[in-house]
């Protein structure tokens, strides 16, 4: 119930913000993401990931409020020797061997952020993303490949700051991607450190 309430508040916030007439700027940016598996993801892969990137656009609909969308990609991998039970209706038995485990997470989120500070200087921001995560997990052992690909609902609270960097803005932030489980899968959550650079479309194009 609390989750539903929070979602309604966020959606209302985005809709209200989108109707504002104070649009200043359109920012688009690129962040490099380093991630740490958390919660149930950590049971599947415990290695940190240095393979991640996000493309994002943010539009200031009020002096201190931005909304936008983002698309990311994070790749986790791990090697481990495991003994696993397999019972898939065709085969029932035990398989041992070196396992190559992977998780590819592609979050497609709508975001909203509150900013504090002067636009010409450093600013802090706090916000959240809300949307869909396409999560492709794979286990390879020997010549056996077990894929599990699903869409998940999730949200991503984020806290960070940005500051002027030439004619652009540099960004450092932390995100926690909470990805709900789906049809018996684990929740595939992970914490993320983002380092990026954002550009003003308005400043550059006109």
């Amino acid at each position: 119930m609390k989750t539903t309430y929070a979602i309604m508040v966020i959606v209302a916030m985005i809709l209200l913000a989108s109707t504002g007439a104070l649009a200043q700027d359109d920012l688009f940016g690129f962040t490099y993401n380093m991630s740490l598996p958390t919660l149930e993801t950590r049971d599947f892969i415990s290695n940190e990931s240095f393979r991640g990137a996000t493309l994002e656009g943010r539009n200031f609909v009020a002096p201190n409020l931005a909304v936008g969308i983002s698309v990311g990609w994070q790749v986790f991998d791990e090697q481990t020797f495991e003994t696993m039970n397999v019972n898939n209706g065709v085969f029932s038995g035990v398989v041992s061997g070196k396992q190559f485990r992977y998780v590819n997470s592609v979050p497609i989120l709508a975001n909203a952020y509150f900013y504090g500070g002067d636009q010409d200087g450093g600013r802090i921001f706090i916000g959240t993303g809300l949307g869909a995560y396409y999560v492709a997990s794979r286990v390879e052992v020997g010549r056996i490949v077990i894929d599990n690909n699903n869409w998940h609902f999730g949200f991503a609270p984020e806290f960070g700051f940005d500051f002027p960097f030439g004619d652009s803005r540099a960004l450092i932030s932390g995100t926690f991607n909470y990805v709900f489980n789906n049809e018996g899968t684990v929740n595939f959550s992970y914490a993320q450190l983002n380092i990026g650079i954002f550009y003003s479309i308005y400043e550059y194009m006109w």
């Binding site: 690129f30 790749v75 991998d77 190559f100 020997g142």
Partner: peptide
């Protein structure tokens, strides 16, 4: 950054099996 990322994320499934030994498996059923 773009060049670096293209090197960092070369595929969806990095660090995969490289040697015949990586494919060794032991299967039992009863």
């Amino acid at each position: 950054a773009v060049v670096a990322m293209s090197a960092v994320i070369p595929s969806c499934y990095p660090n995969g099996p490289e040697s015949p030994e990586d494919f060794d498996i032991i299967v039992t059923a009863f």
